[in-house]
Amino acid sequence: MPRLSPEELRERMARDLPGAVLEATPLRVAPPPAHGPQPAPFVTSDTVVAAGQIVEAALYLRDTLGYAFLSDIAVVDYLADGIFELVYRFYTIEGGDGLVLKVRVPRETPEVPSLTPYWPGANLHEREAFDLFGIVFTDHPYLRRIYMWDEFEGWPMRKDFPKQGDKYIGAEE
């Protein structure tokens, strides 16, 4: 099984899975400061995959390339760019660096197909993403909140979640 670098992966996927690979547009990350030098935009070197095709892409990695071990699903809230980015990390048990697939969904309607039917290990990752960011994973067997209690309203880790005050405690303060 080959060990690929991110560029090679992008090429192969663009070839084998047409339509899955998207252009990695630069992200602003933080809102630009009022004065002073503007930070450089963030252009990722990892493969950006269309949200609807993530399952295909992940299965391609597992079956064709041998990257069977899904290590981590991280979510980043890019408020200034208006998207959520999900970062899927795959490794192969033969060792070496992993491969990363990134999925960008708009903040208003964050919906992504779930990997749980194929990777049971993605279960808790996706529940955490749902609980803290509000990303809805279709086909997830048990998409419930995991840290917060079930009746909690709001998505705590989003950047626009108020950090002061709480409608449960201190709302009257």
């Binding site: 990350v29 933080a30 450089a40 963030f42 290590s71 981590d72 991280a74």
Partner: peptide, 18 residues
Amino acid sequence: GFYLVSDGSPRPYRYKVR
């Protein structure tokens, strides 16, 4: 694992613990 995203400031933009 730690996944860190930086926006150039002294504070992490996203800090995730695996």
